[in-house]
Computed example of a mutant assay.
Amino acid sequence: MAESLRSTVQLLKTFDGTSSKLDSFINQIDTFYARYYTNDQSQQEYVLLAIKSKIIGEAEDFILTRPDLISWDQIKIALQQKFSDPITRCNLQQQLIFLVRNKNEPCLDYIQRLKSINTQINTKICTEVQNLEARNILIKQNELTATQNLLANISKKKKTS
């Protein structure tokens, strides 16, 4: 288990305070924490040190000023309060629903914008929704909305071209 733990730590991505990357970082660390945080005191210490080592830059500066943060749950809440993206999942879903391809916008640029919003929503779903079945349903609904938007915008541009 120890070798597996060390190998996994090396694969974890870092978080530097960029709001758009916080939800992905938290999802990754939640999975890591659930798998490796055991009753073994030394492993608990290692897991928390490993998590803290993945917090860099502005986020690390913030965490260093907070010695009161001694658990992953406390660190996670503090990071969310300080660095979370102010755009809610509901706002992103509205953006997705009403996203239109701009006049003379290349199709690939429009698709990239669509994919970006779709990814942001799915990441927020994974962070906010704990029930796996509900999470999967919401992600499928989001994918359907994105597909409908794509079809509506691509076919509309074809007709006017």
Rank of each mutant, 00 (worst) to 15 (best):
Y37I: 04
Y37H: 06
I26F: 02
V9N: 06
N27Y: 02
A34M: 12
Q10L: 14
A34S: 09
D23Q: 05
I29V: 05
K21L: 14
K21G: 12
S7I: 10
Y33W: 06
G17W: 05
S20P: 10
F15V: 03
T18I: 09
I29C: 04
F15P: 00
D30L: 04
V9S: 05
Y33I: 01
T31F: 13
Q10Y: 15
S7Y: 12
T31Y: 14
D23S: 07
D30Q: 05
K21H: 10
T38G: 02
R35K: 14
K21P: 08
T38M: 05
Y36G: 08
I29R: 01
F25P: 00
Y37C: 04
L22G: 02
Q28S: 09
D30P: 13
T31H: 12
L12C: 03
D30T: 05
I26A: 00
F32T: 00
T38H: 07
K21C: 15
T14L: 15
D23W: 04
G17L: 09
F32V: 00
R35H: 13
S24P: 11
S19I: 06
F15T: 02
V9W: 10
F32K: 00
L11S: 11
T18Y: 14
D23P: 11
L5V: 02
K13L: 12
S24I: 12
A34G: 08
Y36N: 04
N27V: 09
L11A: 09
S24R: 10
D23H: 07
S7V: 10
R6I: 11
T14S: 11
Q28N: 09
S19K: 07
S24L: 15
F25Y: 05
T8C: 14
K21R: 11
S20Y: 15
Y33M: 04
V9K: 08
R6L: 14
S24G: 15
L12M: 06
R35G: 15
K21Q: 14
S19Q: 07
A34R: 07
L12H: 02
D16M: 11
Q10E: 10
T14D: 12
L22W: 01
R35W: 11
F25G: 00
R6D: 11
F25S: 00
N27I: 09
F32Q: 00
Y37N: 04
S7D: 14
Q28T: 05
S24W: 07
T14Y: 13
I29Y: 03
V9I: 08
S19V: 06
G17F: 07
D23Y: 07
L5Q: 02
T18F: 13
Y36L: 07
L5H: 02
Y33H: 08
F25Q: 01
I29D: 01
Y36Q: 02
S24V: 10
Y33Q: 05
S20T: 12
S19C: 09
F25C: 01
F15N: 02
R35Q: 14
Q10V: 14
T8S: 09
T31R: 12
N27E: 08
